[in-house]
């Protein structure tokens, strides 16, 4: 009888301790979860502010102003600068390409001559 009572008491105390411990754990975990949630919310808020700032920095008006300032030689593409594939394969365009190629060849020969001359000058020195 005594043993049974002692064991029951021991079990009761053990269960009490466990329950108490679980409760504490839950409270602390909840606190930690709330902390994490708050942190997530803060991060999301920060991301939103950064996104808004990034969008503001990329507004078309601002980009146009920056292009005007730093890309003076570039202008928006106009429709007459584009051609269709059919036009691309037309002969006069090919001729233009050939002409350009000839120009490139001449420039390249001139460049090689220049390099050769420079080499001679250096050797003489």
């Amino acid at each position: 009888m005594n043993k049974a009572i002692v064991v029951s008491l021991f079990v009761l105390i053990l269960v009490g301790i466990c329950v108490s411990r679980v409760k504490y754990e839950v409270v602390f975990l909840r606190k930690s979860l709330e902390g994490i949630n708050k942190e997530m919310e803060k991060c999301s808020d920060d991301i939103k502010i950064y996104s808004a700032e990034w969008s503001y920095l990329n507004t078309p008006q601002r980009l146009k102003a920056l292009c005007g300032k730093y890309l003076k030689n570039l202008k928006p593409l106009e429709n007459n600068q584009l051609i269709s594939y059919e036009q691309f394969t037309q002969s006069h365009f090919q001729e233009d390409c050939n002409r350009t190629q000839e120009g490139h060849n001449k420039a390249f020969v001139a460049f090689l001559n220049g390099v050769a001359k420079a080499k001679d000058v250096l050797e003489e020195r």
């Binding site: 593409l77 584009l82 269709s84 059919e86 036009q87």
Partner: peptide
Amino acid sequence: VPILCESVGK
């Protein structure tokens, strides 16, 4: 048109 149109030059 240069941005949107796929069939330019036609």
